[in-house]
Lab assay of single mutants.
Amino acid sequence: MQIFVKTLTGKTITSEVEPSDTIENVKAKIQDKEGIPPDQQRLIFAGKQLEDGRTLSDYNIQKESTLHLVLR
């Protein structure tokens, strides 16, 4: 499924993921596309910071959901 990751600069990254993918996994995909190390990434969805060990389905993230990427 496709999800969108919006950066603070307003850029939107499209990523191909599975509901069973972990947040860590998603951060790795963002690193592949943007070159941002996962340890600098914080992903936010519905006002919550997403934890690395959890999966997209844990957070009820569905296709075409938009996550927000904040850098630390």
Results as ranks from 00 to 15, higher is better:
L50H: 01
D21I: 04
D52Q: 04
G47I: 02
L50A: 00
D52K: 04
P19Q: 06
V5K: 00
E51W: 07
T66N: 04
A28K: 15
P19K: 07
G47V: 02
I23K: 00
N60P: 03
T14Q: 08
G10K: 04
E18M: 14
G53V: 07
D32H: 11
E16G: 05
L56R: 00
G53R: 09
Q62Y: 09
E51A: 08
S65P: 02
E18D: 12
D52Y: 04
L43F: 05
T14P: 06
Q49H: 12
M1K: 03
K48S: 08
S65L: 03
D21A: 07
I3A: 00
G47D: 05
E34S: 14
E16A: 09
H68M: 13
V17S: 03
Q40A: 10
R72L: 14
S65K: 04
D52R: 04
T9R: 11
K6E: 07
Y59S: 02
K11Y: 13
V26I: 11
D52M: 05
F45K: 02
S65V: 07
I61V: 09
Y59E: 02
L8W: 15
K63R: 12
V17C: 08
G10V: 02
R54S: 07
V70H: 09
K11N: 07
M1G: 04
Q41V: 12
G53Q: 11
L50Q: 00
T66P: 02
D21T: 10
L69R: 00
E16H: 11
F45C: 02
Y59H: 03
S20I: 06
S15I: 15
L50K: 00
I3L: 06
L71Y: 09
K11V: 09
G47A: 04
D21L: 05
D58I: 03
E34P: 03
I36P: 05
G35L: 05
S57M: 12
Q31H: 14
K11P: 04
A46L: 12
L69Q: 02
K33H: 10
M1H: 04
L71G: 06
G35P: 03
K11L: 10
T12Q: 06
L56H: 01
T7A: 05
I61Y: 00
I30S: 02
K27T: 03
I61F: 02
S65C: 04
G47R: 05
S15T: 15
S65G: 05
E51L: 10
Q40P: 02
K63E: 11
D32W: 10
E64N: 15
G10F: 04
A28C: 08
A28N: 10
R54T: 05
V70P: 00
P38E: 08
A46P: 00
F4P: 01
Q49A: 11
P38C: 10
S20K: 08
Q62D: 09
N60L: 06
V17G: 02
R42A: 10
